[in-house]
Design a protein around this nucleic acid. Sequence first.
DNA 1: ACTCGCGTCGAACGTTCGTTTGATACAATC
DNA 2: GATTGTATCAAACGAACGTTCGACGCGAGT
Lengths: 211, 211
Amino acid sequence: MNSPDTKDRLRAAAEVLFAAKGFRGISVREITELAGANLAAVNYHFGSKASLLVQILEQHVGELNRERLAMLDKLEAEAEANNTPPQLEAVLKAFLAPAVRRFLDEGGEDYPALLSRLHQDPTPELIEALVRIFAPVAERFFAVIRPLAPHLDDTSLLARSMFLKGAMLHSLSDGDRLATALTQGSVRLNDPDRVLSELIAFCAAGFRAPA
Amino acid sequence: MNSPDTKDRLRAAAEVLFAAKGFRGISVREITELAGANLAAVNYHFGSKASLLVQILEQHVGELNRERLAMLDKLEAEAEANNTPPQLEAVLKAFLAPAVRRFLDEGGEDYPALLSRLHQDPTPELIEALVRIFAPVAERFFAVIRPLAPHLDDTSLLARSMFLKGAMLHSLSDGDRLATALTQGSVRLNDPDRVLSELIAFCAAGFRAPA
DNA sequence: ACTCGCGTCGAACGTTCGTTTGATACAATC
DNA sequence: GATTGTATCAAACGAACGTTCGACGCGAGT
């Protein structure tokens, strides 16, 4: 079975599995088995299990961040054309919508769950990779949001950005476990559009709140 | 070294280590080594590594939740005496302050980090234990908050409660990694009182925002 | 004095892990 | 047709894991 796409199949399998059970929770054997490849294939194609994860991260989070930056560019262009500052809600949407939409499109909570899990992973090299990948988008958003919340000093702004990130990651990865457990399933939070609009409303008000 | 407190030392060591590197990230050997006990001690005293974790969880999260419920009781008693509903900020504080204060008192981010990590742990029995421990407090808070946000239906209320939880867990466990990385260390978010007040302001405004 | 039970100990158990090895198949190159 | 490089394979490697075992020390109860 000499197939040129073994590497792709490995990547795809690893994405699904890492998202479902985290980096440590998945063995190379499970990945290669799902991909229909030999055990040695991961190390042959990617060098190591960790490199495989980093490569996946760079690809997909990079895509996500490119979407975010594109939406921001568009926003700022419109704002400049109208000579008005962009709306806070629109800025938040630029940050949140790509992640939530991905959550919808992929038919699963793969990337958010994986990201959220990795944010809690104490392996230094993974944390470092995450920070490196996220830094440009975070800096850009910080710059755009700062003039929209002139009543907040840098500490407040950073704290609230952290809350935004936490709310997003948790709601996308936890899914509706809390809601389902609390209401015995009578209330579900599995509509991405609803989650997105609630998230925007919640965080926009949070950023507008006085210090 | 026949010491009656070997069990306690194991518990203490496990708390610190689990918090630092998660459940999977710590081996029984590391725990027993830090505790100055024999490798077999964990299984002798607790039955298994997983049971040790659950016991730690029940003890400390139980304590946390008792504090929360006590603060809520006090709030409701005052409200009833004054014939006025409790303040939204006060209710949020009852939920957030015990966790943040613990984060301060313990001199580390042990419990929040551990909790946040466990929320991402896919081991079913741990998830089940977490939900079981948290359910009573969550139900109570939901009941108290609902009349304070009459403009929100149950779906919105649950979604925003989830955001609150996510913001809290993330900010307590992530610490100021984002802030430090973004500002090259010029802004720190390591003052628990500041984080608490920001969290309350952010979430109160979030709950008040129209649907 | 003897026994019993609890706590501790070193040592080993059986598994699973990520990684490495050496052989083999096969297309492309000369 | 021989050679080279790429991809796959079964098999094994050494390490680390959670857990179990049997022996031993020792204080309490009889």
